[in-house]
């Protein structure tokens, strides 16, 4: 059982605890060559709506020109009132999500109260910055973070760059290879105070368009029953939209909405 002297205690920081007990992962010493086909996750989107935030991610992972997975998930609950979506090297991204979730839970248990949303966003910023040496060797991870701020009673969203730069966005944010196309769709379709359904439709269209233009992004796949991961975060907390509802929304989208009209 880990114990530390009073002046030497890692406090509620799980990352510091991992380093102290020798479980932290060192970044690769040299750039990873092309012969190591690294799996990459691609397009994620987040946008605000009337009650909070909606996050979405496609399900495809690629390594080079191969599709390595058709149904990976890129949108995760970070804790009850926040979510994190990842794009970039899939292995380190999953690890970052796991560490981030644990960090929030660990802090809450050690301190007896949860971090503020601002505090959570800053934590993720530090994790991305600490990951920079690995990003320089070709393992970049660029997350989105969104949550419902219980103190301000509003949904908030943040995007990051590889150096850990943290940028709060007012309306929407995207990341990943198809992020540019997705951002255009959300930008054109966004308006203040959208309903939940309108927001879900908008992020679905964004993912569909990104999949149309970017080979590394996978669109909805009704034949296999693979749907993007879409989640809403409002005062009730993080709730994943189930596949049946997504299928229903997809069916109502006009043919123009389903393609990159």
């Amino acid at each position: 059982m880990p114990s530390f002297a009073p002046g030497d205690d890692p406090g509620p920081d799980f990352g510091a605890l991992l380093r102290r007990v020798g479980l932290a992962v060192a970044p690769p010493a040299t750039p990873l060559g092309p012969e190591l086909a690294i799996t990459h996750g691609t397009t994620v989107v987040a946008t605000r709506y009337a009650d909070g935030v909606v996050m979405a991610g496609d399900r495809r992972a690629t390594s080079g020109n191969f599709i390595s997975h058709r149904s990976i998930e890129k949108v995760f609950p970070a804790d009850r009132w926040s979510g994190v979506a990842i794009a970039g090297a899939a292995g380190p991204a999953m690890e970052m999500v796991k560490s981030f979730q644990l960090q929030l839970e660990h802090y809450e248990k050690v301190e007896g109260s949860a971090l503020s949303l601002e505090g959570k966003a800053n934590q993720l910023s530090q994790m991305v910055r600490n990951h920079l040496p690995a990003a320089m060797q070709g393992l970049a991870v660029v997350p989105l973070f969104a949550g419902y701020d219980l103190r301000r009673e509003a949904g908030r969203l943040f995007q990051y760059d590889v150096t850990g730069g943290r940028y709060e966005e007012d309306d929407y944010a995207t990341s990943g290879s198809g992020g540019l196309h997705a951002a255009t769709v959300v930008k054109l379709g966004y308006r203040d105070g959208m309903s939940r359904i309108e927001a879900i439709d908008l992020v679905l269209k964004a993912i569909i368009t990104a999949a149309d233009e970017d080979s590394a992004t996978g669109g909805p796949d009704p034949a296999r029953g693979i749907w993007p991961v879409v989640a809403t975060i409002a005062v009730e907390g993080f709730e994943r939209v189930d596949d049946a509802e997504l299928a229903e929304r997809y069916a109502t989208l006009t043919p123009a909405g389903r393609s990159s009209s």
Binding site: M1, P2, S3, L17, L18, L23, L102, E105, K109, V110
Partner: peptide
């Protein structure tokens, strides 16, 4: 706190 650390590290590993 030692217990929380023990449990979280075990769950992580």
């Amino acid at each position: 706190i030692a217990g929380v650390r023990h449990a979280d590290l075990k769950g992580y590993s």
